[in-house]
Computed example of a mutant assay.
Amino acid sequence: MKIGELAKRTGMAASAIRFYESRGLLKVASRQANGYRDYPPEAVAVLTIISDAQQAGFSLDEIKQLLPADVSSWQHDALIATLQRKVADIETLQVRLTQNKAHIQSLIQLIESKPEDMDCKLNAARVIASMGITIDK
């Protein structure tokens, strides 16, 4: 299939397809006599896997290591191990994001608890002091 049809089937721009091909994620397409690229039907599956993997947080280098030369020959144990590592990375990130969110929410609460008669400059000093930060003048 030509690159235009592949782009239509995958929802990707032709430039993205050429990029993935140049990075070695997608097999180099054969060329027709007129010079047009001719992609095999499995290119749709490969590009879908690449897109899904990127959305799941895999880098292009990780995806390249993960993709077998032939899509039908996945290394089961290596694939499972890689996916489990990514799940662990995501869980670690979730913990860190939850902590960051709680910290920011407490900071918002602290800032918003400004006494009515306090101006912003004094409130900023109050917030900074409550965080244990000292500012040398």
Rank of each mutant, 00 (worst) to 15 (best):
M1K: 07
K2A: 09
K2P: 04
K2R: 15
K2N: 15
K2W: 14
I3F: 03
I3P: 00
G4D: 14
L6G: 10
L6F: 12
A7F: 00
A7H: 02
K8N: 10
K8C: 11
K8E: 08
S15T: 14
A16I: 15
Y20W: 06
Y20R: 00
S22G: 06
S22C: 05
R23K: 10
L25Q: 04
L26H: 01
L26V: 01
L26Q: 04
V28F: 12
S30I: 08
N34C: 10
Y36E: 13
R37H: 08
D38A: 12
D38S: 15
D38Q: 08
D38V: 13
Y39I: 08
Y39N: 06
Y39R: 09
P40L: 03
P41G: 04
A43Y: 04
A45P: 03
V46R: 08
V46Q: 03
L47W: 03
I50Q: 04
I50C: 07
I50H: 05
A53K: 00
Q54N: 02
G57P: 00
S59D: 00
L60P: 02
L60M: 11
I63F: 06
Q65G: 13
L66F: 12
P68V: 05
S72L: 02
S73M: 07
S73D: 14
W74E: 01
W74D: 00
Q75M: 14
Q75F: 09
H76M: 13
H76D: 05
H76A: 07
A78Y: 05
A78S: 09
A78M: 06
A78R: 08
I80S: 09
A81C: 11
T82Y: 12
L83N: 10
L83R: 11
Q84I: 03
Q84D: 13
K86M: 09
K86I: 04
I90V: 11
L93V: 03
Q94E: 12
V95E: 14
R96C: 02
L97S: 13
T98Y: 04
Q99D: 14
Q99A: 15
N100H: 08
Q105G: 08
Q105S: 14
S106V: 09
L107V: 10
I108L: 15
Q109D: 10
L110M: 12
I111H: 05
E112Y: 04
E112R: 15
E112P: 00
S113H: 15
P115E: 06
E116Y: 06
E116H: 13
D119R: 06
D119F: 08
D119K: 04
C120G: 11
L122S: 10
N123E: 03
A124N: 07
R126V: 01
V127N: 11
V127M: 09
I128N: 06
A129E: 10
A129F: 01
A129V: 00
G132K: 10
G132S: 05
T134N: 11
I135E: 02
D136M: 07
D136H: 08
K137S: 14
K137H: 13
K137E: 15
